[in-house]
Design a protein around this nucleic acid. Structure first.
Lengths: 303, 303
DNA sequence: AGAATAACTTGAATACTATTCATATCGGCA
DNA sequence: TGCCGATATGAATAGTATTCAAGTTATTCT
């Protein structure tokens, strides 16, 4: 008999297109999902998917069940929010500080969605950048910090968001354009254009250049577009998240290359005071980030 | 984690108000439901019911989940209908014959609901009454017969509907008005007003009078109101289903009394050709009868 | 063409947890 | 006080969802 579990799986399969990835999202193995979907198909006596070499494609019947899954899971989520409200006071503030400049790109739609679901929560984005955003938490000036730093003590918890790849951004006719991978040594003599943050907060420097004993000239800018402009006009190179440069690469404005053999990756977390971590709206804020980013940002990997 | 099973239970509890009865509807024990609901309450950390000596009353949180249950289960049913349509042709005819005259009272709303859900199925009610409605099935002139007769062979299946009580209906000042129970012997000398059907199809005669060796004068009428009119004007007595007389009793038009110590009960079935029993719309027609009657007819018992 | 990769499928073993059974408890009523 | 009609509870059970370990199939790379 149909259960919500089936609908949750269905929705995950629709998002990822693949059983392996969907399995991760619903905390099951790929095999479990395969069994589950086959059982559904047997139950209704109808095929829900076309199995291709590259994942599953929904049949019309599958799409109909998927539609059910969407409306149903949304209804369930709505009811659970209401239960949380009935269960206790859910009002509160959520002042957000960003450690990574590029996160602006996806944060606005997340906040919009969140405000719709939790109108009684005051969400705010702290203006400006801060050398150590975790300090804002301790000082009680923010409730949530998005970044790759993990908090030290037991007073704060880091809720995992996603992992993204940082790419080297080069002007179109750059001497390194022929290489598929950029190594630290390749960059000798270049000027590095970054956001205005300390060296130790720049992954390329901390994880790649410093270990190789290479120091580059630096130039800073607050805005992602400005950095890209500087790169395009040959004032230097940059290292930016995959999703932040994709559009400009597609427009042939700059080129992007993987850094090192495996690529340079960074993990993003949402850090909140332990006392707030249990609040239902905090969990849901994180959920919204994860689902919106998984759907909208290419080449990321949910943690 | 919330599952549809919980919502199904919730809906059943709402309909019956009691765990024991709800348990029957979802094919579980009372204990299972108790555990299930306690688990839900623990999961959400909120009470869903006020437990009273006479069943469960929904708290606001319970009502919110119940509302979720209603919309969700309806959405699921809708999706499953669509799957049935995708799975195969669901068109067909459903010509209905009634063995019991009083069933008219509840059949119309059932048919309306059914037409809304299965517009591609042609439902019709066979006009007139038939001495042996099961013959209509065999002759291919009907697809579904509602009555208390069970079919003999393997070619037809009887889908259980509900059990109802047949009450003795007497005029207001009748000599038996003082008795709480009417026994066969009490009726000696009365005139029995019935629908125009053979003796062996009248439960009061077959199950009560005949075994006691009592024969009464008979008078017949096609319409329930007409029978009640005759009773009220002292032309005789009748035996009619609980729900058919309730209104008239409440209006002090006639009085109704239990027949025998345990009451006289009759079981209603929907009989269909075995070939049709698997059709999704047939099952749903039966479901609609059961749920609408359970909700609307007082004092019946689902089979 | 052959090997490697990246998917999904399958059947048996396992682990989990929902359900039952049997009994306790509660509240109202005579 | 005792009984009736309810629900609650704890331990045992049964049922079934999930995992594990191969097995298949299609596609891509060399």
């Amino acid at each position: 008999m149909l259960e919500l579990r089936h609908l949750r799986s269905l929705a995950a399969i629709a998002e990822t297109g693949k059983l392996v990835q969907a399995a991760g999202r619903v905390h099951l193995t790929q095999s479990a999902l395969s069994h589950q979907m086959r059982a559904l198909e047997a139950h209704y006596g109808i095929l829900l998917f076309q199995r291709t070499g590259a994942g599953l494609r929904f049949t019309p019947a599958g799409q109909r069940l998927l539609q059910l899954a969407r409306v149903t899971l949304e209804a369930v989520a709505g009811a659970e929010r209401d239960l949380a409200r009935l269960q206790g006071d859910t009002r509160g503030d959520l002042r957000i500080a960003l450690e990574c400049h590029t996160c602006f790109d996806w944060l606005m739609p997340v906040m919009d969605e969140f405000r719709g679901r939790w109108p009684e929560v005051e969400v705010d984005l702290l203006a400006g950048f801060h050398s150590d955003p975790l300090e804002l938490l301790k000082g009680g000036r923010a409730e949530l910090v998005i970044g790759s730093q993990k908090p030290r003590g037991r007073d704060y918890v880091a809720l995992p968001l996603f992992r993204f790849e940082i790419l080297a951004v080069l002007p179109l006719e750059h001497r390194l354009r022929g290489k598929r991978r950029i190594e630290a040594a390749d960059l000798k003599g270049e000027t590095l254009i970054t956001y205005p943050v300390p060296e130790e907060r720049i992954d390329l420097i901390r994880q790649v250049l410093k270990p190789a004993g290479i120091r580059l000239a630096r130039r800073t800018s607050e805005l992602t577009v400005a950095i890209l402009q500087l790169v395009a006009s040959r004032r230097g190179i940059a290292a930016l998240p995959n999703w932040g440069v994709r559009n400009y690469v597609d427009l042939d404005y700059v080129i992007a290359r993987r850094i090192g053999a495996r690529g340079l990756w960074s993990d993003l977390h949402a850090v909140v005071p332990r006392a707030l971590a249990g609040r239902p709206y905090v969990g849901e804020f994180v959920d919204i980030i994860r689902s919106k980013c998984a759907a909208g940002l290419p080449g990321i990997e949910l943690l």
